[in-house]
Nucleic acid binder design. Structure first.
Length: 374
DNA sequence: AAATCCCGCCAAATT
DNA sequence: AATTTGGCGGGATTT
């Protein structure tokens, strides 16, 4: 009874064996973005998001929290957030850069309206008020900001999550009382890294020496506005892979939207668009306005009945499926010569999509009751 | 075996 | 008291 929803109900639709990958926070974030990073969107309802993305509320909180800490969103009220867009990120980043040095502070940017009756805690950082807001100090949002600050402030551009966990926790000299529970904290960092990756703020790589995985800050490239090209990192190969995702359907009462047939066409079309887009990926290097890309790439983002199937471009890799690993290899080769490798990659990727599409169709076919809700 | 990290219980916060 | 938020970590999945 306590098993994951791999439940393959009798209906012979023993479809997806259950792939954890397809349920990653990163993918969810990508979907979230493609869903709300639209011109007409300005306000986001948590319930709406959870429903449309087909996930439990809890997950939405995770995403929303980190997005807010970066400045993409802003809490408006209970159950309601406002879309700030990526344009607000640079500003938030700047604030983080300026924030205090020793230990962490509560740079609490425009979050939370006029807080309660405290603040004077400038020099006295100990017990006093710590007990109360102790919870907030452990929030995902703050952790995210601190994690980002790690990159923004230090000069190292490669950090492993364990390092980060150790630094972000064991900091503050050593006044004891620091249950070096970095193991627990690292779990949170994985979450953060995933959503940050889905937006391409960071990128996962490997430490040159050790094969240890680590993250590199990509920052806000492009970001027009102010011609000062910061580009701290000399990222020569900024391959943008794309991730597929098939949001899981919560066997809950997930309200399914839209029609069927129309969507099928819709999605296929999107596939093609994506492929086309990939073509000129070879001679890309256009690390310009990624916001723009993201925005139009998910033009007609549609869901299919049941498993809200989403397949949009978002060349921003991050979450990867089996193909990604190889892509990395191709990348090294391609960067040197032989650009046609990408074609092969695309072919494989497309095959993957087709497969996913097929299995989805079969599921729908097996299921008889397809109620349309609009 | 080690690295990831999903899932959802259940306790603070808010309403 | 009810509902919204969101720590937290067991343990399933991937690598």
């Amino acid at each position: 009874m306590a098993l994951p929803p791999s439940a393959s109900n009798e209906s012979g639709s023993a479809n997806f064996p259950y792939c954890r990958k397809q349920k990653s926070l990163g993918l969810l974030c990508t979907n979230f973005l493609s869903l709300y990073n639209q011109d007409n969107v300005e306000t986001i309802g948590l319930d709406d998001a959870a429903t449309r993305l087909g996930v439990e509320r809890r997950r939405i909180y995770d995403i929303v929290n980190v997005l807010e800490s970066i400045g993409v969103l802003a809490r408006k009220a209970k159950n309601r957030y406002s879309w700030k867009g990526f344009g607000g990120v640079p500003k938030t980043l700047q604030q983080l850069r300026v924030s205090d040095d020793d230990e962490d502070e509560k740079i609490s940017n425009p979050i939370t309206s006029q807080n309660d009756k405290l603040n004077p805690s400038s020099v006295t950082k100990s017990s006093t008020a710590s007990k109360t807001d102790n919870r907030k100090e452990k929030s995902l949002g703050l952790l995210t900001q601190n994690f980002v600050k790690l990159f923004l402030c230090s000069n190292v551009d490669l950090i492993s999550l364990e390092e980060a966990a150790k630094i972000l926790l064991g900091d503050a000299h050593d006044p004891s009382m620091m249950r070096n529970n970095s193991a627990a904290k690292v779990r949170r960092l994985y979450d953060i890294a995933n959503v940050l990756s889905s937006m391409n703020f960071i990128e996962k790589t490997h430490h040159p020496e050790t094969r240890k995985p680590a993250f590199r800050w990509l920052g806000t490239r492009g970001k027009s506005d102010n011609g000062s090209a910061n580009t701290s990192v000399l990222n020569e190969s900024k391959k943008r892979i794309f991730g597929t995702e098939i949001t899981n359907t919560s066997f809950k009462r997930t309200k399914v939207v839209s029609t069927i047939d129309e969507n099928s066409k819709q999605i296929t079309k999107t596939h093609l668009q994506m492929l086309v887009k990939c073509e000129d990926l070879e001679n890309e290097v256009d690390k310009s306005n990624f916001e723009q890309d993201l925005r139009h790439s998910s033009k007609n983002f549609q869901f299919g009945p049941f498993a809200p199937v989403t397949v949009h471009v978002s060349k921003f890799g991050a979450t990867q499926n089996s193909t990604v690993k190889q892509v990395h290899d191709w990348e090294s080769l391609a960067s040197t010569y032989r650009p046609q490798y990408y074609n092969q990659a695309l072919r494989d990727l497309f095959a993957h999509y087709v497969e996913a599409w097929k299995s989805w169709c079969s599921e729908v076919a097996g299921k008889n009751p397809i109620q349309l809700i609009s």
